[in-house]
Design a protein around this nucleic acid. Structure first.
Lengths: 342, 342
DNA sequence: CGCGTCAGTGGGAGCGCTCCCCTGGGATGA
DNA sequence: TCATCCCAGGGGAGCGCTCCCACTGACGCG
């Protein structure tokens, strides 16, 4: 009685029968009609919608070799990056671009080695491509992905030497940092220090370079005595600012490599009685919510996060369409958002 | 020359041949060996690993009717919930439980009607089940999902009347709110007001009820004059607190339905010269990062977010294994975390 | 010693689709 | 008028797998 398929989903065969054409013709109609008469097209569409036909994607995949599935990989061990607006925005941008192409996004974590291996397995098994939100540089991950030959686009520059087929989309971290620092200089700051991110993250590295660019161009010193290293967290920003205040008491401008650390720096500055921006001007990076709500509100560098995600998805689609393509590296512009802190 | 499959992936057939058994036997071995001799098991495993065999999941799905794909649905229109720790933690818990069962998680947004329809389409098309992180109650979404008969588990109570097959996992919002309010009462607060969340979110509704429970049990008034409604954002917490201070000047305890609003309330209290907790004691809900870093640090109700995700996944897996099961509603306990604000 | 039983195995059928080759017939050109 | 071309459409093959049924041979029991 109650078989395994009480009301079995209609198949292409049934649609074809209802439309009075063959399965082949119905297939042609349903996947971008070529060489089909208008009457057949109409009949098939009518039958399909009447029967509420939905193609069986497994069957399609079996023959096309495509799954229509793309992995969204986050390589952070804990949930910091995961609950981060950067992740959220990039994911949303990617989601939008992908869903327009009828591709679904599989969320995968690759924080530790076990998760990484599982991901690579999964990718080889059923994913057409990978979108990797690449926090700290994870060479193991890059190598693992290359080994299984799955088309991939990274967010953030991937610092690989040698012949590598890595595609990526990044914000212009260096240019943004340079612009931020130049803004400080233009305000009249003469002792511009920086709080950088971790060295093993391309974003941290590049933003540091941008600061160096601007400071040296202005003929000022950009050595390590004018710099403190944080880890992109608010607490590390506090610590770095405290450290810098002790080492460079006459500082009058700070470029902080992200907003969270900048908020920490702002708090320390206030505790030390330094008025912002009168005594010390501060510029952050990212333009997250906290930049608007801090006091004073934070001048910062905005990066087009949703666009990064969207562009990653588009490049992946391109790569999927032509696997032989040479790697593309795309750098998206940043914009300085001037608020009260500088 | 360069055909479409330069080095074609090995098939089960090839593994079977290499192991000297039939395809049927190889299949049996690879999917939980039953009635297979130890020697055959060993031979198949050896051949499979030597050939680096990976089953074609599309082929498997085609015959089993299962895709091994579960949708993770977020029904917020913007990225607020999406970048929220609640989402991050629930997603992580679900991810862990699911990946242990070799099920992948497809991230899907269902903020507006278009996205919702697309999701329902997608679900009917290729998803075995759905995990819905249900912010505001979206009846359209619930109905749409029921229509396509896809097993689903919601996060958060789903307030549906009538016969409905909804499964959900929720935190004990009402009990947590009651405990929070009782804590305020136990400290000696006599005029305990509340800032609630939106009425159309079950969490907002239930936390309000918990406050009512505790306040009325203490023989105190719990009417609408002692309450202000926010939308779970920091700004709305500020507004609500300002409003309450004007309407109930002698208030000495505030139960705020989430931490973000509580942080806003704390700021307003400070601006009005009310010392926390000496003049006014404040308790929040959620135990997010901000609760630890606010000043004073926030006493709050922690909910087991990762467990909610994990449990949702487990219930979905149960449901997948036996579709006839009656709906399960699970409520997970919360814990009061006492810090400085109360 | 013959029969039934049962673990172990082989292999056919078939999931629903796309691809591709083939046919039929109308339009075209000689 | 007849050969040629081409466009629509039909339908077989086959993707890689699981399911199931039938078969084999070893074993136990009457």
């Amino acid at each position: 009685m109650a078989g395994r398929t009480p009301n079995a989903r209609p198949t292409l065969e049934m649609v074809a029968a209802a439309a009075g054409v063959s399965r082949g013709t119905a297939s042609r109609v349903l996947s971008g009609a070529h060489n089909v008469s208008p009457s057949a097209v109409a009949a098939v569409h009518k039958a399909a919608s009447e029967l509420r036909y939905r193609p069986n994607l497994s069957a399609r995949s079996l023959v096309t070799g495509r799954t229509g599935l793309v992995g969204l990989v986050v390589n952070e061990s804990n949930d910091h990056l995961f609950s981060d607006p950067y992740f959220a925005e990039v994911a949303r941008g990617a989601h939008d671009a992908l869903s327009e192409a009828d591709v679904a996004m599989v969320l995968t974590l690759a924080g530790d080695a076990r998760e990484r291996d599982r991901l690579i397995d999964l990718a080889a098994l059923r994913l057409d491509g990978l979108l990797v939100i690449h926090g700290h540089s994870d060479l193991e991950l890059v190598r693992g992905i290359e080994r299984v030959h799955v088309p991939t686009v990274f967010s953030g520059r991937v610092p690989i030497t040698g012949e590598s087929h890595v595609w990526y989309v990044d914000a212009d971290n260096r240019g943004g940092a340079r612009a931020a620092t130049e803004h400080l200089l233009a305000r009249g700051c003469r002792t511009v220090v920086t709080i950088t991110g971790p060295r093993d993250m391309a974003a941290g590295h590049d933003r540091h370079d941008g600061w160096v660019d601007a400071v040296t161009t202005a003929g000022l010193p950009a050595d390590d005595t004018r710099l403190a290293v944080g880890d992109f967290s608010t607490d590390s920003g506090r610590a770095a600012m405290t450290d810098l205040l002790a080492r460079v008491p006459d500082l009058d401008g700070v470029f902080v490599a992200n907003d969270l650390m900048a908020v920490g720096a702002l708090a320390v500055l206030a505790e030390h009685g330094r008025s912002v921006p009168a005594d010390v001007a501060v510029v952050g990076f990212d333009d997250v919510e906290a930049a608007r709500t801090s006091s004073p509100s934070l001048t910062t560098v905005a990066q087009p996060m949703a666009d990064i995600g969207r562009r990653m998805a588009e490049l992946l689609l391109t790569q999927l369409a032509d696997t032989e393509l040479a790697p593309i590296h795309e750098v998206l512009p940043t914009t300085l958002v001037v608020r009260d802190s500088a």
